[in-house]
Design a protein around this nucleic acid. Structure first.
Lengths: 210, 210
DNA sequence: CTGATTACCTATCGCTGATAGGTGAATGGA
DNA sequence: TCCATTCACCTATCAGCGATAGGTAATCAG
């Protein structure tokens, strides 16, 4: 399956950080392609061109590699949502654009989305059960959605429900579509873009005052 | 963690099937509690009271245990949806009841739901990429939803979108809520029942003609 | 040139999923 | 009643896993 292990030349003295990036790049690709549990540290190491224990100079566990990718994926999504152009006074179109951006992110970068929202490492499982918080990037990306709903609510543009509930409902609606499309590519979906457009239309229509 | 391995007495001659059920029961509990990848075949065997290789008399791989639980979970959901009382001519209330039943199933049996929709074994990953089909139970449970939407559509009770798209959209909306509630119990959700009621209200309101 | 630091290595650990090959209780036909 | 077969289950062992211990050689500052 995997080719021979061509050793990568040793990094110069201050440049161990480059190796770290190489590991993350290789891991993202492999995790995305085969799933985190089907990829061994030896495979990652081989893809990078180093010995397996060398990974542990940069990460203390295999899960920590997933963790870092997880955080970066969240940060990417948050950045994407934050950097959207917005009207000075928030409009319904701004919300629609954000919903679309969320779905696009998930479908354009399914590996990242999987890792951000669908991946379950042992670390996560414990973390999510005990800590009342999500990682920063996660709060931030949900926060963008939340703030938009709050702003629209203040302008009385949303239906008569508290904005917290509306925002969580929207998130659920978005995540459901993205995660099913990613996880069940073999399902007989209707034409993808049509489904997305309709779904986002339904969600926006459900949340926005008519 | 796990206590001592009290050996279970040998099954009588024709009763190996009972052992199989015991294995599935133990595996469902352990997979649900710790996640499939964090549970070893030795732990399952210990919980049942047999040696680890004996598992392989009943299942040819560990994934096959997950597979069987997966199919059973789907069948349960399908049964639950199929057995709902329904009006002779389908009403919007029937649809709402089905939506609620779906969510209730997921939240009452998070282990089963996780295994049915959120679990990713190596087998699955390949299967879903190559085969155009879901397991029977899966098609069946989505089918119930689909048929309801079709029936409502024929009575012109739905909004002006094709029923296939509406049904898939509904499914995504349901799955998103259930999977996030299950996977992120630490998130600062609004009161759960309120969120569910609102969400289902939004979904139904979005799909049904006003 | 030297000493410290850095970037890596090989060897090995306990554990995992899975296989090979055997044992001994139950059963049904002679 | 004997015996062959079947069935339920065992111990021993495998290669591969994540992770650790401990060493080595390249590199850089002084």
């Amino acid at each position: 399956m995997t080719g021979k292990a061509a050793r990568s030349p040793r990094k110069a003295k201050g440049h161990g950080g480059e190796r770290r990036e190489e590991i993350l790049t290789a891991a993202l690709r492999l995790f995305g392609e085969f799933g985190i549990h089907a990829v061994s540290t030896r495979q990652i190491a081989a893809a990078v061109g180093i010995s397996q224990p060398t990974l542990y100079a940069y990460f203390s566990t295999k899960d920590e590699i997933g963790e870092e990718l997880h955080n970066r994926a969240f940060a990417q999504l948050a950045a994407r949502l934050t950097q959207l152009p917005r009207s000075r006074i928030l409009t319904q179109e701004d919300l629609s654009a954000a919903l679309k951006a969320y779905v696009d992110f998930g479908l354009e970068q399914p590996d990242a989305y999987r890792i951000a929202f669908m991946l379950e490492t042992a670390t996560h499982r414990t973390q999510f059960l005990t800590k009342p918080d999500l990682p920063a990037g996660s709060r931030e990306s949900f926060g963008v959605l939340h703030q938009m709903v709050v702003a629209l609510h203040e302008q009385a543009l949303t239906v008569d429900l508290d904005p917290d509930t509306l925002a969580q409902s929207l998130w659920a609606g978005l995540h459901g579509l993205v995660s099913l499309l990613i996880a069940r590519p073999g399902f007989p979906w209707v034409e993808r873009q049509h489904l997305i457009d309709s779904h986002l239309g339904l969600l926006a229509g459900a949340v926005l005052r008519r």
